[in-house]
């Protein structure tokens, strides 16, 4: 182990030998399993040029169209994610500050709203937006882009704005109490103390958590494909696969694109987090564990 672990002592010669044997054994088992998977794929003809050609062979007739459509899908995914995070930040900021600044009674509806929206699956909020809004006669045709995009953005925003409100609250709560007291002592109003003293410091603490939430939003845009609502990357890939009959290949590419974008963002979050360790700073804000959604 590169770092000392609470589980083991520093290994001696015997433990190192055992680890080497175990490692060799695990590698062999891993190779055999990988081999079986590859054999299964090969037996089903999944490595054939017909299926991979449109993706990897530039001279294939479908190659330009496939990548063009995938690029459109990436663009659509990024658009939805960018809109959602922007609206979530604005609304979440208002909700979060409202929860912190209102009195015990007055903030009860805000708390109730946060708890309600947090307890709902995102796919339900998106579905709700797409079914209930038209029924209520809400007209989105004035907005640029197709209606599906806006249903997706509204559903994602409804869920993520309360998560961001909680991240902001945790960020402000992590600041030393003296910050607020000092701000009030020099004569700032509570609102000015929040705006000028607390929020600017809190943003630095919660930046990693906010970036992690962006990963969650990016992943959740793909729910539009499950609901057949909006042609983002996954739905685009699925439509291509229906035409070319190569779901394994196209979906692997789609997954790789998602993983690449999200992994880069996760690394960015870690980097920002570690960079801020250099300065003295309050307790970190853990990213919402509901990352899972």
């Amino acid at each position: 182990m590169s770092t000392p672990s609470v589980l083991y002592d520093a290994p001696g010669p015997r433990a190192r030998r055992r680890a080497a044997v175990g490692g060799a054994f695990a590698s062999v088992v891993g190779l055999i399993l990988t081999g079986l998977v590859i054999k299964r794929l090969a037996d089903a003809g999944q490595f054939s040029g017909d299926l991979w050609g449109p993706i990897v062979n530039p001279s294939n007739e479908d190659f330009p169209a496939v990548w063009n459509l995938l690029a459109k899908g990436v663009q659509a995914t990024l658009t939805a994610a960018a809109l959602s995070i922007t609206f979530s930040l604005i609304i979440g900021g208002v909700v979060g500050v409202a929860r912190m600044m209102l009195g015990r009674r007055a903030r009860m509806p805000v708390v109730a709203l946060i708890e309600l929206l947090r307890g709902l699956p995102v796919v339900i909020t998106i579905y709700f937006a797409s079914r209930v809004l038209p029924e209520l006669g809400v007209d989105l045709s004035g907005l640029p882009g197709e209606a599906g995009l806006w249903f997706l953005v509204i559903g994602l925003t409804a869920y993520n704005c309360v998560i961001i409100a909680e991240i902001i609250r945790a960020g402000v709560a992590s600041l030393p109490g003296g910050q607020r007291e000092a701000a009030l002592a020099v004569g700032l109003t509570p609102g000015a103390a929040m705006r000028l003293v607390l929020l600017p410091q809190a943003v630095r603490v919660m930046l990693p958590a906010l970036i992690s939430q962006l990963v969650v939003i990016l992943k959740d845009t793909s729910l539009a494909a499950v609901l057949a609502l909006y042609t983002e990357l996954l739905r685009q890939g699925n439509l291509i696969a229906l035409n070319l009959h190569n779901p394994i290949q196209i979906l692997s590419v789609v997954a790789a694109i998602f993983i690449l974008i999200n992994y880069s963002l996760s690394r960015l979050a870690t980097w920002v987090d570690q960079r801020s360790i250099r300065t003295t700073r309050p307790r970190r804000v853990e990213p919402a564990p509901a990352n899972v959604s």
């Binding site: 999944q46 990963v215 793909s222 996954l234 890939g237 779901p247 997954a255």
Partner: peptide, 24 residues
């Protein structure tokens, strides 16, 4: 962990439901 955490659940669902039948 790296691969699964960064891949949306819906992509996994599509892969299982449309990919696995391709290999029988």
């Amino acid at each position: 962990v790296t691969v699964i955490r960064n891949c949306p659940l819906s992509v996994l669902l599509f892969m299982f439901a449309f990919g696995l039948p391709e290999i029988g």
